[in-house]
Design a protein around this nucleic acid. Structure first.
Length: 797
DNA sequence: CGAACTACTTAGTATTGCGGAT
DNA sequence: ATCCGCAATACTAAGTAGTTCG
């Protein structure tokens, strides 16, 4: 069935020109989270147009040899048009739009960086079900609802209320009070393996055999460790900030950790070509193994992936090998794959001691490379490991998937550290590409990755000062937006009537960003990445206008792939003015043309920062997410509920945000199973409850007969307790089931980690008397230590 | 000015490993 | 003791946005 659907869709896509057929079909048959699954023939990108000379690295893989002539023609056409329209644009800036609604204005069609994807023709139908999600009304309905919830524009107009308290809250001008001098001088002796699982101090009930003392001792130890850790914590938020641009004064680290060298295959594992054993050179063998290891993965069924891999693999081969191996389908990686599977199994089946040995070895690596000294404090590094080589796993229909991601050598790595610090030693026999001493950046090491030509950095852990400070600042900017968002909204409502096209487009885009929490939508280089869009890069084909739909007027249907190729699908009623403008923007355009042809993120952000210092498009997402959480918590939570219910309402508030921000996940593979398990558990409990109840009545009866036999009375009490316990447990499980079901394809983590001001959650926990551990795990508490420390019950975002 | 370059945040998925159930 | 389910963590791709360069 799915295949059928897919087939149909392909056909439709084949004539995507009209835009409509495609969109409609997607809306019906595909799921909200549909990744563009596709068809890789011809690398899916047919357009020769390259707007500019790209970086050298970037051109490397650009052998788009076979290109349909018509595409070239089309590209040329577009190009010339774009030149034309540029002039036009200049004029129009000052041009007057007298009757724009009547369509006097002819929108130009500037070809931006992106280019139309070549239409899929056919391909292996390896449609992975579990990447799909059923499109259900419920979910889009929920989205709309959540949208409405935060719509009330002037409702929270009373924002100034916040200012009162927030003053000292934010401690904008942190006094330099060095309270904690403790570790200050102690130089942080490299002790404290903070690996401790003190996490849940509540349940010391590990092994029953342990004596009471042992348990107590363990508990005490944990508490002590916790305290120690707390004392060690750098309370940077109480210190003065550095002058502009300076990120640190002293930085010392051991450099990145490199992955182990490649281990050649054992002699009994063979690669076959065309049925014959072929002993590959080391380099070619390593790359072959990368592929063999992925054989179970859907990637290896994709044409683009296979072609890209093969192309890059052949580059690693010796001349001889290259002559011989010319067809991927004649390659047999079976034994390599089997060896890999075996290894994985063996690792799983390892006994405890061996596992411990490995664990300890890993720990030693962490101890050595995982920390740095930054301004007298020992900070955790986030990713201290150089990314190992492998095959590039781009998301969605990425044109570069399958290319070889090369092994990084010390000679590729730039080290950044403090002047006067001990410069990290390169691995024996090697040297660094460069050592620099730049304290205006936060990275410790960087290298250029070969597939996309972009930079990779080694940076600190989220719990570090450098990250925390930035995070705090982010939420403060969002809170500032709160106090002027009404003005800004008023302004863009006005701009919807502007005589200048660019202003109208900006206003509509801003409306989307504000109301729907869309991302900004930077331009992307065509053919270099999957075809995804954000607000400013929306194309005509991504929206459909309905004068009337499902009981609402002026409905816009969005259907596009956003970041990470996550589908955004939503039907939203908009104001008449926005609707009219959209119609105007779409006039005389092809489906593949930009909706906001006069706008880009730079322009938009420039405008925004003129309205409020520090304001950019993404601040709206932060602001709307946090304010939604706050509102929802207020609405949903009930101080008299029990803990499970309170947590459910928290999760629901969190969920409203995740829906708003379109944070999705693949439903866990075991979802249905585990749901069923939970249900059957509930059933069992129910039976127990019935039983307990009848026992209780029986006991009561007996009491009545024998007046007050103390034994019987005790029995009744016991039975009562049992009934109660059962009820509680059932309730708890039911709440859990609800929560899990609602969470099936929603990811809460992203918003919790990146969009929700932690102080809202912390204040809520305090007010609701819910332990913070129920909301934030250990690393989240570390990340938000600044907020945990400073937040009082009266915090208002 | 726009493209390129750089730095840093945000994102979903894969892997790990813990604790409870058996 | 082992298995299993899930939460936590690791990983790295893919965004945003500021700065520099031609």
């Amino acid at each position: 069935m799915i295949c059928e659907v897919r087939h149909v869709r392909r056909c439709e896509m084949g004539r995507r020109k009209d835009g409509k057929a495609k969109t409609k079909l997607q809306g019906q048959a595909l799921t909200p989270r549909q990744r563009m699954v596709g068809d890789e023939k011809e690398g899916s990108s047919g357009d020769a147009r390259k707007k500019s000379t790209k970086r050298k690295e970037r051109t490397k893989h650009k052998e788009k040899s076979e290109r349909a002539e018509k595409d070239v023609k089309k590209a040329k056409a577009v190009k010339s048009k774009s030149v034309e329209s540029f002039d036009d644009d200049v004029r129009v800036h000052s041009a007057v739009l007298d009757e724009p609604e009547d369509g006097n204005f002819v929108p130009n069609k500037r070809g931006k960086k992106r280019k139309r994807q070549e239409e899929p023709i056919e391909g292996p139908s390896t449609f992975k079900m579990n990447n799909l999600k059923e499109e259900d009304e419920a979910s889009s309905g929920a989205k709309e609802k959540s949208r409405k919830m935060k719509k009330p524009k002037e409702e929270e107009g009373a924002c100034p209320v916040t200012t009162k308290k927030s003053k000292e809250e934010k401690g904008e001008c942190p006094v330099t009070t060095k309270k904690k001098s403790k570790e200050e001088k102690g130089e942080c002796p490299v002790t404290t393996k903070k690996k401790s699982k003190e996490e849940k101090g509540e349940c010391p009930v590990t092994t029953k055999k342990k004596s009471k003392e042992e348990i107590a001792a363990g508990k005490a130890l944990k508490i002590k460790k916790k305290e120690e850790e707390e004392q060690q914590r750098w309370r940077w938020w109480e210190e003065a900030k550095y002058e502009d641009g300076v990120k640190w004064k002293f930085l010392e680290h051991k450099g990145p950790h490199f992955p182990p060298e490649y281990q050649p295959l054992p002699d009994n594992v063979h690669f076959y070509y065309n049925g014959n054993i072929v002993k590959l050179s080391l380099a070619a063998e390593e790359v072959a193994l990368f592929y063999a290891q992925m054989l179970d993965h859907e990637y290896t069924t994709k044409e683009v992936f296979r072609n890209n891999f093969f192309k890059d693999w052949r580059k690693e081969m010796t001349l001889e090998e290259r002559m011989l191996i010319t067809d991927l389908s004649k390659c047999d990686f079976g034994e390599l794959h089997a060896m890999h599977v075996e290894k994985v199994e063996a690792r799983k089946a390892m006994n405890k001691e061996d596992k411990l040995v490995i664990k300890e070895a890993n720990q030693r690596i962490v101890d050595e490379y995982g920390f740095c000294m930054l301004d007298n404090h020992r900070e955790r590094i986030g990713n201290f490991k150089i990314e190992p080589p492998g095959l590039f796993r781009g998301r969605g229909e990425h044109p570069k998937q399958g290319y070889l991601k090369k092994r990084i050598q010390p000679e590729d790595v730039i080290i950044n550290c403090g002047k006067g610090s001990r410069v990290p030693e390169p691995p024996a026999g090697h040297r660094w590409k460069e050592v620099r001493y730049d304290n205006t950046v936060t990275w410790l090491a960087s290298w250029t990755e070969n597939v996309q030509g972009s930079c990779k950095y080694i940076m600190l852990n989220p719990s570090s000062k450098l990250k925390g400070e930035k995070d705090w600042e982010k939420y403060e900017v969002a809170r500032r937006l709160k106090s002027c968002v009404d003005r800004i909204r008023l302004q863009y409502q006005q701009d919807l009537k502007s005589k200048q096209m660019v202003n109208r487009q900006r206003a509509v885009a801003l409306y989307f960003i504000d109301v729907l929490a869309l991302r900004a939508g930077n331009e992307k280089e065509e053919g270099e990445t999957a075809d995804t869009v954000g607000c400013c890069s929306l194309r005509v084909e991504h929206i459909t206008l309905y004068d009337r739909l499902e009981g609402s007027d002026c409905v816009v249907e969005f259907d596009f792939l956003g970041k990470d190729c996550i589908r955004y699908y939503n039907k939203v009623p908009v104001t008449k003015r926005v609707f009219k403008n959209l119609k105007l923007f779409m006039e005389n355009k092809e489906p593949g043309d930009d909706l906001f042809d006069r706008l880009n993120t730079g322009l938009l952000n420039k405008h925004l920062s003129s309205l409020m210092p520090g304001l950019t498009a993404k601040v709206f997402r932060t602001y709307n997410a946090s304010i939604t959480l706050q509102e929802q918590l207020r609405k949903l939570s009930n101080g008299t509920a029990n803990q499970a219910e309170k947590l459910l309402s928290y999760n629901r508030a969190n969920r409203a945000v995740a829906v708003l921000c379109n944070h999705q996940r693949a439903p866990p593979k075991t979802f249905d199973q585990s749901m069923a398990n939970l249900q059957s558990k509930i059933e069992v409990r129910r039976e127990q409850l019935t039983l307990a109840k009848s026992e209780l009545t029986l006991a009561k009866k007996e009491v009545k007969g024998h007046c007050s036999d103390s034994k019987l009375l005790a029995l009744v009490e016991r039975k009562k307790k049992a009934v109660q316990r059962c009820e509680e447990q059932i309730m708890k499980m039911e709440v859990q089931a609800t929560d899990r079901e609602e969470n099936k394809q929603i990811a809460l983590g992203t918003s919790k980690l990146n969009y929700l001001d932690p102080r809202i959650s912390i204040a809520w926990c305090k007010n609701m008397e819910v332990p913070l551990e129920k909301i934030y795990n250990k690393s989240q508490r570390d990340k938000f230590a600044w907020a945990v420390d400073m937040t009082q019950t009266d915090f208002i975002f």
